[in-house]
Write a protein that binds this DNA or RNA. Structure first.
Lengths: 240, 240
DNA sequence: TCAGATACCAATTTGCATTTGGTCTATAAT
DNA sequence: ATTATAGACCAAATGCAAATTGGTATCTGA
């Protein structure tokens, strides 16, 4: 450990003064709402210091967490916005089937409730179409396709693009999460498959503008799915 | 009656033939990996038919679910992929403050309900901390920081990483959406600001494991925020 | 009456120039 | 010798105009 590293830090006074000068400038200048401060080239000119020196001062503020920077974007006051967790793969890696199921049970009933209030006749027509097609499905894969589309149509019926986006994210994670794994069985869902009745109850409630009924029907449906899923995992655990 | 001699007329035979011709073309031409087929203008020229007629044939294929189309993008084979916009910026561009508020009212009460079931003592301690800090805030910016952290702590308390991820997405969109715009007023929130009472009601309910109460308190809080937001927009509209 | 051609529209993509933080180098200063 | 300065360059990000593309309306002609 060489002590001269401290002395070569040449004049702590100088450094501190530039940081102080910068702090003062930032305190008195009113920044735009997004907290962005001027580009380094402008700021250094405005402060009458070199860009190098300014950057050293900015390094200090960044280390203190006062500012955050990003190439091409700029330098901003405040703390860096949390990493957009919107990465499906990352979410899926951190999650698991049970968690996905719980999240669905939290989110989707409320989406159904909202849809019961905002759904257009066209939405309901499409829901009915999904119902019919899912009954006619020749394979589980086809059935799953129409099931997914029904749930998404309900999310669309909220007429809220953000809710639809959140639903899509949830759905993408659901598909990405590694389950036991979906069988591509040639057999088709039994005509008395529980989802048929449950799906119909949901669409009926939405059609009748029964918000509470829609939420309950969706919750009931997802809880049944959850139960079947847990049963399946148990059986797989016993067999495996 | 000789049907086959009158091929110039617009009978079902002609229409069907264009569809067949199109099918044959698509079968023998190798499309790029994304399944995109040539623009309508090119394709109609290549097939020696008018764009109108081609579009009618494409309409048939689309109804059959063989292809999907999107303005500005093109026409593609296969089923339409769900636009998985996990992209915050894209979501924000398509959304607006009112929509964000509605989405919060749909999602967050249920998150609070789940949190009331799963919150740990440590979670509740942190919520109380956020409450206290928000009361002590010197500026709206500081207050907003603690408010955001409180809501996120509640989402964390669900112990569900996926729900937390969805909440973060919602929150990121909320920040990204351009409002009237947040004032950087030097004044601090009044000591009797409505959010203080409402936040406390939420945390109280969570602490008492009162799931319905937590959901109601959160809904009540967000509805108040929504009302204030609308009032503000109205005033801004009148002034501007 | 209806297919065909044309023009226009809005959503989207593409390409290019600009901006911006990050980094390196040469020069001058001390 | 060290350091500060200025300048140049890079990659990421942005902004903008032009081109592309599916969708739609209008006019024409048979």
């Amino acid at each position: 450990m060489r002590m001269d590293s401290l002395t070569t830090d040449a004049d702590p006074h100088t450094q501190k003064s530039t940081v102080t000068q910068l702090r003062a400038f930032l305190a008195q200048s009113d920044l735009p709402d997004d907290g962005r401060l001027p580009p380094e080239r402008e700021l250094s000119a405005a402060l009458g210091i070199s860009r190098t020196e300014l950057r050293k001062a900015l390094d200090v503020l960044e280390a203190e967490g006062q500012i955050w920077r990003h190439v091409g974007k700029g330098t901003f006051m405040g703390s860096r916005p949390l990493d957009t967790f919107a990465d499906i793969a990352a979410l899926a890696r951190r999650s698991n089937p049970a968690e996905v199921m719980r999240a669905r049970i939290v989110i989707e009933p409320e989406i159904a409730r909202a849809a019961a209030f905002t759904a257009t006749p066209a939405d309901i027509t499409e829901m009915r179409l999904c119902l019919a097609r899912s009954r006619q499905a020749d394979s589980w894969r086809q059935y799953e396709g129409w099931d997914t589309r029904l749930h998404r149509t309900i999310a669309e019926a909220t007429q809220n693009g953000l809710l639809l986006g959140l639903f899509d994210t949830l759905n993408a994670v659901r598909r990405a999460v590694t389950w036991g794994r979906l069988r591509a069985l040639p057999v088709r869902p039994a005509p008395d498959h529980h989802s048929f009745r449950e799906h119909e109850a949901i669409v009926d409630a939405i059609e009748h503008r029964d918000m509470a009924g829609a939420a309950n029907a969706m919750r009931n449906h997802l809880r049944t799915v959850e139960r079947k899923l847990l049963d399946k995992q148990l059986r797989a655990a016993e067999e495996g």
